[in-house]
Nucleic acid binder design. Structure first.
Lengths: 335, 335
DNA sequence: CTGAAAGCGCTTACAG
DNA sequence: CTGAAAGCGCTTACAG
């Protein structure tokens, strides 16, 4: 066994073997340009027989393309986010593979975008997916200035940015109104960092949910921007003191903490207080009692995001904002 | 703003502007071949001034390289593994970036290696890192047959495979002997799928730990290949019935389950029984009482793995097997 | 319908 | 010390 990689067969080899020009071989494969049916079949047959794989890098160079898409992963995640990103990435990879694209990874740690800069400055990607964005986002600034095509997972307040997201606002609106039907009265809302666009949308949906039943939220029971878990625990106690019949949690992490606190206080769910979450997540999955929550398909989010950036790369026009559907999963916790 | 990517400056532009040949520019950058000091500085200055970045793809084509390394991630992970893989990947990315390489992602789901096949058949990578391998591994078969350079994270029983791992065997040996010092008598060992090479090494270390104190393990207290959590719970009870003074757990997932079971049985750690784990992990981190365990630096594992595959790509010789150090962290649970 | 030639942006013998 | 030319493996006007 030699130490070298096996030398791959090239388009020139095929041309020589078949007694045609490289042009013809190229055309047979791409389907572009006129070519005789017989000639074409000949080439295709040869390719199949010899299991020829064109060198995508060379193809890319000739077309000023790379057939790579850059994906920027955040590093400062917590456990729950990790599974979200992984699953989304899986969706991206799946669709990319089908379209003959590959994923080039970059990381974003504390808004250090050097990793992103490298892959785009080195011309290694045709487009970029940002897995997480911020209100003021150096990634977006950089990509705009470089005029590179990109898509964001989740909503962004930047103008002109193509974004794919679940329809959090309407999801929260609907869940809120469903819960309001069950608890004739006081519903508390806890958690949510308003620096995140998604939190803003959830809050909006919450208010709109109230509107649908002709009421308006009791602002004493809405506690956002809770700084830490200790604060959160206190907010749970306060909600109970104000006789909240149901606690809505901004996301699954909040919800787990709330449930633990209720457990410590010997409050039974749903007998003493109902609980629901605006986001499903792995930690909520096997909780007893089962927890009512919104349910989003993360892998699908990845697939749609991947398809969108590839469409953009290939010159198709795409929607400025794509909102994916959601499900409301009613479980024991709001019975 | 045009719809096109900004056209990058090329080596030809520099050559024209400076009135030298492309050869000279190339040489100035690479440092290869003879070139006058003054000419060289001229070029370098121009490059810095205009912030020129060579097109790595073109460079790669000319050198039959890609400056990409493929990383194959497993998909059938559980939560705990996920953080391991993420952190390892982070290490790989860090060193790759420093060496001007990038990460191309592939997935391995149920030993479907089509994703891996695509990136190597398409000539998109110079080498591959396998994040997880199996006793009979189609990934390894494929890469060997293709004669592509690759490295595995963790140990493999295949011959001739370059592997990077923590020194699990000696780590387990040392922890076992430390624990034996504290519990003059009966130590139980629970968990570990013997289809995994790492489990085999841990078990070996466990036995060797006994040897160091001149004893041999009580086989009634060694329970490996435990099929599920129910079984595991039963094994915990059995260990207690046999008056085990300490329970050693093969990994953190096992350990968490064991701790929960002990909690249910109202057994106090370490008063009623001591506990230690052969692997640290996120779920063990904040446990009360704090848990004695082996501690491994996962990011470092990634860094070393990345450096190794790059060394191989660049023709340097590397060790067949690299074993990284470990730490024994004594905590409350074995007091 | 097919091919010769130029080009994508680099590197690298070869020659001077 | 420097440059003209060929080459990496493709694509694509252009010409016939």
């Amino acid at each position: 066994m030699s130490d070298e990689k096996i030398k791959n067969i090239t388009i020139a080899d095929i041309a020589a073997d078949l007694g045609v020009s490289k042009t013809t071989v190229s055309r047979a494969m791409s389907g572009k340009g006129r070519i005789g049916q017989k000639t074409r079949n000949n080439v295709l047959e040869y390719i199949k027989l010899h299991d020829y794989k064109p060198n995508i890098v060379a193809k890319g160079l000739a077309q000023s393309r790379t057939y790579n898409i850059g994906v920027v992963m955040p590093v400062d995640y917590n456990m729950m986010d990790l599974t979200f990103f992984q699953e989304c990435l899986l969706g991206i990879e799946e669709i990319a593979g089908l379209m003959e694209y590959d994923i080039l990874l970059a990381y974003n740690k504390d808004n250090d975008i050097s990793s992103l800069e490298r892959i785009v400055n080195n011309g290694k990607v045709d487009g970029v997916i940002l897995m997480r964005t911020f209100i003021n986002d150096p990634q977006i600034e950089f990509l705009k200035q470089k005029n590179i095509k990109f898509v964001t997972v989740g909503s962004s307040n930047y103008t002109g940015v193509i974004q794919i997201d679940h329809d959090h606002k309407n999801a929260c609106k609907e869940l809120t109104s469903v819960v309001l039907m069950k608890c004739s009265g006081t519903v508390a809302l806890l958690g949510g960092d308003m620096n995140h666009v998604v939190s803003q949308n959830r809050l909006k949906g919450f208010y709109e949910g109230y509107e649908t039943v002709g009421k308006s939220a009791d602002m004493n029971l809405v506690d956002i921007n809770i700084e830490n878990n200790i604060m959160l625990d206190k907010k749970v106690e306060e909600a109970l003191e104000q006789n909240a019949e149901c606690i809505l949690c901004m996301d699954d992490a909040i919800c787990v903490r709330v449930l633990n606190k209720l457990h410590d206080l010997h409050k039974k769910v749903p007998k003493d207080v109902k609980v629901a979450s605006f986001y499903n997540g792995i930690m909520l999955e096997n909780y007893v009692p089962s927890i009512t929550s919104l349910s989003f398909n993360t892998k699908e989010l990845g697939i749609v995001t991947g398809r969108t950036i590839i469409d953009m790369i290939e010159g198709k026009s795409v929607a400025q904002k794509t909102l994916l559907p959601y499900e409301i999963v009613l479980k024991e916790s709001t019975k």
